[in-house]
Amino acid sequence: MMTEATVERLSGQIKAQKILIEILLGKQVLQSAESAIVVRESVRAAFLVTRRGSGAVSEEERRGSNEIFEQALETIEFLKSSGGRK
Score class of each variant (00 low, 15 high):
E34S: 04
V7A: 13
K18M: 00
G26A: 02
I68K: 13
L25H: 11
G53L: 01
G84K: 02
M2D: 13
S81N: 14
S82I: 02
L73C: 06
G83F: 04
R51I: 05
T50P: 02
Q71W: 12
S35V: 09
G53Y: 00
R51Q: 07
G64V: 06
M2L: 14
A72N: 03
E59D: 12
S81L: 11
G83N: 00
R40T: 07
K18W: 06
S32T: 08
Q13N: 12
T6P: 12
L73Y: 03
A45L: 06
L25D: 00
Q28C: 02
A16F: 08
Q13V: 11
E60W: 09
K18C: 02
G84L: 07
K86Q: 14
L10Q: 13
R52Y: 09
Q17V: 09
A36P: 04
S42A: 08
T3E: 05
T6M: 14
L73V: 12
E22W: 05
E4D: 13
E59C: 07
I21E: 15
V49E: 09
K27E: 10
R51Y: 05
G12H: 10
G55Y: 12
Q13D: 08
G83Q: 03
L10K: 14
L30N: 01
L79F: 03
I14R: 13
S42W: 09
I76W: 01
L73H: 02
G12E: 08
S42V: 07
V57D: 05
S35D: 10
A56I: 13
Q71A: 15
Q28K: 05
L20F: 10
I76S: 00
S54C: 00
L24S: 08
G12A: 12
R40Q: 07
R40G: 02
E61R: 14
S54Y: 09
L24C: 09
E60Y: 06
L10V: 12
V39W: 00
L73S: 00
I37R: 09
R62P: 02
V43S: 01
T3G: 05
E74M: 11
M1W: 10
L48R: 02
T50F: 03
L73M: 06
N66P: 13
S54G: 03
R85H: 06
S81F: 05
K80M: 08
I76F: 01
T3L: 08
A46T: 05
Q71F: 09
A33H: 02
E22R: 08
I23E: 12
S65C: 05
I76N: 03
G55H: 13
K18Y: 04
T6I: 09
G83E: 03
R62K: 13
G55E: 11
K27Y: 08
Q31R: 10
